[in-house]
């Protein structure tokens, strides 16, 4: 086991020298998470907007459900996706288990309720402001939803970044469905877990720093975005 100070030095060297092993893990992490977030946004934005605008029986129950699913334990999602994709499962024939695609599915399932719930809130707030004007102008439902999604774009980007933050830092689901296979499904969080369990703290720390840097970048982006939107009175 390395001591702490030498672990920090080694971690800094790893990052500074941009080791291919490190870059491969970071690249796969970003690919998996970005794909999952894009899928979650494509599903979550329209559903969230419809939940905010439409009046139908069961709307409150659906809203409660998605709010509850925001706190879905990642390992439970991993387990469900594992059962679906394993050879004995209904989608076993696709042979997706222990592939990055399985990890994308798991992360998308984890993030979609977050995107839906946050989108609903953002759009509902804006709709309260626009509702009477839309009613007066006789804006068709579809046009209204599209207009709300566009006008709430800054809030929705923040929502997407929140989903990205949740997905990139997640370990439970991707380790179950991905298996943490070197050069295939090893991402930052699973690598950190593995290296820490082996007592190899340098790589774990290096990846931890990268994760922290990504988290900081996300927060800074959200901050700058909101400031820029506020300057233009768009929030």
């Amino acid at each position: 086991m390395q001591d702490f100070s030498s672990s920090f030095t080694l971690a800094a060297n790893l990052i500074w020298s941009a080791k291919p092993e490190l870059l491969e893990i970071i690249t796969l992490s970003l690919q998996v998470t970005l794909s999952a977030v894009v899928i979650a946004c494509l599903i979550g934005f329209p559903i969230g907007a419809l939940l905010a605008v439409a009046q139908f029986r069961g709307r409150t129950a659906l809203t409660l459900l998605f709010n509850t699913l925001m706190g879905l334990p990642p390992v439970v999602v991993g387990l469900l996706v594992y059962m679906m994709l394993s050879n004995a499962g209904p989608l076993g024939f696709l042979q997706l288990l222990y592939t990055p695609v399985a990890m994308i599915i798991a992360q998308a399932l984890l993030v979609t309720p977050i995107i839906i719930a946050l989108t609903r809130q953002v759009i509902e707030d804006l709709y309260q402001e626009y509702a009477e004007q839309f009613h007066s102008l006789v804006v068709p439902r579809r046009t209204a939803v599209m207009a709300l999604l566009w006008d709430a774009r800054y809030g929705l980007i923040t929502t997407a970044l929140a989903g990205f933050g949740r997905a990139i830092a997640e370990v439970g689901a991707v380790i179950v469905v991905g298996g943490n296979i070197a050069h295939v499904t090893r991402v930052m969080t699973t690598a950190i877990a593995l290296e820490t369990s082996k007592g190899e703290l340098a790589l774990a720390l290096a990846l931890g720093f990268v994760l922290l840097f990504i988290a900081m970048t996300i927060n800074a982006s959200v901050f700058l975005l909101r400031a820029s939107a506020a300057r233009m009175s768009y929030v």
Binding site: L126, E129, Y130, E132, Q133, H135, S136, L137, V138, A147, W150, D151, A152, S233, Y234, V235
Partner: peptide, 17 residues
């Protein structure tokens, strides 16, 4: 009929555009 009318509110509702 509403399409042939226009209402302007006391506090104008302007879109974020």
């Amino acid at each position: 009929l509403r399409k042939r009318q226009a209402l302007v509110f006391q506090r104008p509702v302007l879109m974020r555009r």
